[in-house]
Design a protein around this nucleic acid. Structure first.
Lengths: 145, 145
DNA sequence: ATAAGACTTCCAGTGACTGGAAGGTCAAGT
DNA sequence: ACTTGACCTTCCAGTCACTGGAAGTCTTAT
């Protein structure tokens, strides 16, 4: 099948499929007219890439996973270790985002949000000496609640 | 003060400070020898940028926040709305990551992680017909527990 | 015959920096 | 006076994972 059909099957843009070939994640055979041709095997590989990428693996991690996928003698423990490492990364990212959210939430809660120019959010952003911890209870110069 | 001292004060790399100038987020006056010179006002602005960026605002959002910061007549509600929108974005990102984590966790739990080549994680990645929802309880071809 | 659509390659742009080369300036020490 | 080293300058290239667009070839349908 041609690249368009492969794109439809895998739900990957054709641009992305060509890009994956360019960086040697996949290969393709060309038919007489120069068009790329894909087999079911290729679709499998592209699906693998699509799912791995959507699960947060980088291209280089995908390359590693694919090499393990291709290696008939690999140990499943190798793959498990990679996936577990990725889970830890994701957990760290979540923690970080929760902290951001808490800080922003504090800023927002301190802001009366009216038409007056006085804005505790901007003050909080500009003044690094202000301690905008999420838990603090607002005895600030800027507001009374 | 010169760029090095400004960098130390704001904990931003000099490269980043020059970059912010290049994209017109900040400006600087030059002394006779061509060195960039920064005032306390500039340090304030750079600190604002550093904190906004670390809270997840994009450069363009920072540009908008700075323009509100500069606008003595802005309404604090404008700033509040931006911050609230950002909180929602962060919440969505967290939800997404939690879903990734759940899926990866399921894959990992299905993998015995031994020296044998059979690996449910790779199977799960390559076969889009396998339903790897996080809640499912493992009556798969690949394992018995 | 022609038009639409699918395919090709190549080049450039994204965001937010980061690294490195090649050179100018300055203060301290010998 | 000279050297060393830190600090500064500009400019160009690279990162990551695509994405967009131009210009041209090929196939298919009317």
């Amino acid at each position: 099948m041609n690249i368009g059909q492969a794109a439809r099957k895998t739900e990957l843009p054709t641009k992305t499929i060509r890009y994956y070939e360019e960086i040697d994640l996949i290969s393709s055979i060309r038919s007489e007219n120069g068009y790329r041709t894909y087999t079911d095997q290729d679709i499998h590989r592209l699906t693998f890439l699509k799912r791995s990428r959507s699960l947060g693996f980088s291209i280089e991690e995908c390359r590693l996973l694919l090499s393990l996928y291709d290696d008939k003698d690999r140990a499943s423990s190798d793959v498990k270790a990679i996936a577990q490492g990725k889970i830890i990364e994701i957990e760290q990212k979540i923690t970080e985002l929760q902290s951001l959210k808490a800080t922003l939430g504090t800023l927002v809660n301190h802001c009366h949000g009216d038409n007056k120019p006085d804005c505790p959010i901007l003050d909080g952003l500009s003044d690094k000496t202000v301690n905008w911890s999420a838990e603090e209870n607002g005895k600030h110069h800027c507001c009374k609640n």
